[in-house]
Amino acid sequence: MNTLIVYAHPHEDSFNRAILNTASEALRANGHDVTIRDLYKLKFNPILSSADTAAMRAGNTPEDIRTEQELLAKAEVIAFVYPIWWTGLPAILKGYVDRTFSYGFAYQYNSEGGIDKLFAGKRGVIVNTYGTPEEVYESTGMTSSLKQTSDKGIFEFCGVEVAEHLLFGGVTSVTDDVRKEMLARVDRTFRSL
C-alpha cells in the first residue's frame, strides 16, 4: 500500500517526530511504501495566492503544488501528523490543504449541485497532539469539534474515508510511560492499515 504522511512540526526533538517515526516504521514493517512530506523541512509555501489560482484555472498548476498533488494522487492512504495549535492546524498545514486539495483535483461540484469527491477510495489517518489535558478537550466538546473539522471538513469532504483519528492530550505534562502508550497506539493503528 502506498502511504503519504504529511508532517507539520518545526522541532526535530518533538513528540510529533516520535509519532512520525513510529508510524513510518510500523508501515514499512508491513511492507508498505511510505513517502514523508515534512512541510517545515520542505519550507512549503502555505500561502494560496491569486497567481496560484489563476495558474490552476489556466491548467498551469505551479510546480510545488503539482509535486504534492502527484504524491496525493498516488497515495492509497493519506496521514496527517501535527500538533493542535490554537485549536486548529498549524498554518503551514492549513496552507498545504488550501493549495493542494484544490477544486478540480480533490473535489468539484457536479451538474446536480452535489459534490464529486475526487479522493474517493483513499483512506485517512490523523494523529494530533496538544498540551491541554484530554479531559478539558472532552468536557468542552473540543475533541468532537476537531474531528468534525479535520475528518469531515477536509478528508471526508474530498472522499477520504477516515480510518482513525488519534488525539493525544497533555503531551507536555504526562509521564514517559503515558507517552510510550501513546506511541504504542500509533504503532497499532498504522500496523492495522
Rank of each mutant, 00 (worst) to 15 (best):
I65Q: 06
T53P: 00
P46S: 14
A55K: 05
K43F: 02
F44L: 06
L71W: 04
T61I: 14
P62F: 15
Y40M: 04
L48P: 02
I36K: 06
R37L: 14
E63P: 03
L27G: 00
P46W: 03
T35Y: 00
E68C: 11
R66Q: 13
E63G: 03
A26I: 01
E68P: 06
N45M: 03
E63M: 13
E70I: 10
E70K: 14
H32C: 12
H32Y: 13
G31V: 05
H32E: 08
L42D: 00
S49K: 12
L48D: 13
E25I: 04
A29G: 09
I65M: 13
A29K: 07
L39S: 08
A51I: 09
D38K: 04
T61M: 15
A26F: 02
L48A: 08
P46M: 08
R57A: 13
I36W: 04
G59W: 01
D38E: 09
T67A: 11
T53D: 07
T67W: 08
A26K: 01
T61F: 07
R37S: 15
N30R: 15
S24E: 10
F44K: 01
T61Q: 10
R37K: 13
Q69I: 10
I36C: 10
N60S: 14
V34P: 02
N45G: 08
E70P: 02
N60T: 08
A51Q: 12
P62T: 01
S49G: 10
I47R: 14
R37A: 15
N30H: 11
L71D: 12
M56C: 10
N45H: 11
E63D: 12
N60R: 12
L71P: 04
I47K: 08
E63L: 11
F44D: 03
R28H: 05
F44P: 01
R66P: 00
Y40E: 06
L27V: 00
E68A: 15
E70C: 12
A26N: 00
S50G: 12
T61R: 13
P62D: 15
G31W: 09
K41D: 00
T67E: 10
S50W: 07
V34H: 04
G59L: 06
D52A: 14
G31A: 14
T35E: 11
K41G: 05
R57V: 03
A54N: 07
P62L: 15
A55R: 05
A58W: 08
G59I: 02
I47N: 11
T67G: 03
A26C: 04
L48Q: 14
P46R: 09
I47H: 05
Y40V: 00
A55G: 03
I36L: 06
N30T: 02
H32G: 06
